[in-house]
Amino acid sequence: MLRTTLLSMTAAAALAAPAFAGSHSEMKDIVATAQEAGNFSTLLQAAEAAGLVETLAGEGPLTVFAPTDEAFAALPEGTLEELLADTDQLTQILTYHVVEGAVMSSDLSDGQMVATVNGAEAEVSVGDSVMIGDATVTTADIEASNGVIHVIDSVLMPPM
């Protein structure tokens, strides 16, 4: 079951890759890949507000569990505005979405704890779908020149 799930996620990522890769043969960094995808404008706005864009575009490798614009829109009303005004808390939340190294879906296992850049760990669940914390990975293994993006359907909140 685990192997089938991961293989189907890899196949889904392969199908999604052209949408992220664009028409250029050269692979783009995490930020450029997310910009090109078009559904991460809120994440990129938050990363800019927190001063993290340069890090995400840097050498890496990094793995980003990237919430979509829809994931940010699902936050309670006013939450995003509060976070954008509190860069310390925003930085803690955004760095909870980042893991050092290029972690592919095949590297993840059920019950695994992954150390995030903010210092807290997040639990991985692998079953019918792959989850990190309470977020479901909707597209896995989008490769960038400096790491990997896994698209998730909700914003992760670190333990406080």
Rank of each mutant, 00 (worst) to 15 (best):
M1D: 01
M1S: 08
T4W: 09
T4R: 15
T5E: 11
S8P: 11
M9H: 10
A12C: 01
A13C: 04
A13S: 14
A14W: 05
A14K: 13
L15G: 11
L15K: 07
A16Q: 04
A16F: 02
K28C: 09
I30C: 11
A34V: 11
A34C: 08
Q35Y: 01
E36W: 01
E36V: 01
A37E: 04
A37W: 02
T42A: 03
T42G: 02
L43P: 03
A46T: 02
A47L: 10
E48T: 03
E48V: 00
V53F: 00
V53I: 06
E59I: 06
G60M: 03
P61N: 07
F65N: 02
A66N: 01
A66M: 04
A66C: 01
E70W: 11
A71I: 07
A73Y: 00
A73H: 00
A73T: 00
L75F: 08
E77T: 13
T79I: 13
E81K: 04
E81V: 08
E82M: 10
T87D: 12
D88C: 06
D88V: 03
Q89F: 15
L90S: 08
T91H: 13
Y96N: 15
Y96W: 14
E100I: 12
G101Y: 14
A102G: 14
V103N: 08
M104E: 12
L108S: 13
D110F: 07
V117C: 09
N118M: 03
G119Q: 14
A120Q: 15
A122P: 07
D128V: 09
D134R: 12
A135Y: 01
A135F: 00
A135R: 00
V137P: 01
A144M: 07
S145G: 15
N146A: 11
I149Y: 00
I149A: 06
H150M: 12
D153W: 15
V155S: 12
L156M: 06
P158Y: 03
